[in-house]
């Protein structure tokens, strides 16, 4: 067997994976207006990106939405996971199974059903509808992350805390939450990224009053690829890499 074959194969796979990203990053620094010709190094697209008020506004909207959606779904999800973990009740298996249904069902189905629901109850499409929709699809991920952590949770820890004089509330605050904190953070980060780059559901449930970044980009590239998008893509890439490293750091630190 040719010993170069595996190496070549691997190289090809990685080129395929990373070439588009590389092109994006490189062309975000291109001074030429057309996307396929190199015209020298420039930061002009970053400049014009930040001068584009609609774009900056959409970015802030997206960040705010992702922040609130991740936080709300982490709170609800953690409580749900705790309830599913701690109590025995009728229909528990069904409830747990339903989480996976939301996670596995095609996004478009969720999008249409959420839109139908919002129209039915007469909710105006905007921040609130977006938030509700994002919390809905983030929730199962948070619940499952937290439940995984809880399944390895030593049941005698809460008992030890109670034994040493802590009431239920103090025990939760000083023992339970700190111990499951890595899962809460992981769930939050997961929710945050899911919310930040969601297009399908957001397309259906957003209104003109609240424009978010993925939809803004989507509408921009429809009328032709502008170099600002490359700059924006690069910024998002750096941001998500930073988030990834942060989450890894938190997880490894908590394992020590």
């Amino acid at each position: 067997m040719n010993r170069w074959l595996p190496k070549t194969y691997l190289t090809l796979v990685y080129v395929l994976l990373y070439l588009p990203i590389l092109v994006l990053v490189v062309f975000s620094f291109n001074s030429s207006r057309t996307g396929y010709r190199w015209g020298g190094l420039s930061l002009q697209w970053y400049e014009s990106l930040f001068n584009n008020h609609a774009m900056v506004q959409a970015m802030w909207n997206s960040l705010w939405l992702a922040l609130t959606a991740a936080t709300v779904s982490t709170i609800i999800g953690a409580l749900t996971a705790l309830a599913l973990h701690r109590y025995r009740f009728r229909g528990k298996r069904v409830l747990r199974g339903m989480l996976f249904v939301v996670m596995m069902s095609p996004e478009i189905v969720l999008a249409i059903s959420l839109l139908a629901l919002f129209l039915l109850v007469g909710l105006q499409l905007g921040f609130v509808s977006l938030l509700l929709a994002h919390v809905t699809f983030c929730l199962p991920f948070v619940v499952i992350t937290v439940m995984a952590r809880l399944s390895g949770f030593d049941e005698s820890l809460p008992e030890a805390a109670r034994d040493l004089g802590a009431n239920d509330f103090t025990m939760t605050r000083t023992v339970l939450i700190p111990v499951i904190m890595p899962a809460l953070l992981a769930g939050w980060l997961l929710g945050f990224t899911l919310s930040l780059d969601d297009v399908v559901v957001s397309t259906f449930v957003s209104g003109p009053s609240y424009e978010i970044l993925p939809l803004r980009i989507y509408s921009m590239v429809r009328v032709g690829l502008k170099p600002e998008v490359n700059a924006l893509g690069t910024l998002l890439l750096v941001f998500s890499l930073a988030m990834l490293m942060l989450s890894q750091w938190i997880l490894t630190r908590s394992k020590r």
């Binding site: 030593d154 005698s156 008992e159 030890a160 023992v175 700190p178 111990v179």
Partner: peptide, 9 residues
């Protein structure tokens, strides 16, 4: 406790 139940954090 049998498994000590020390608070890991």
């Amino acid at each position: 406790f049998q498994n000590y139940a020390l608070f890991p954090h």
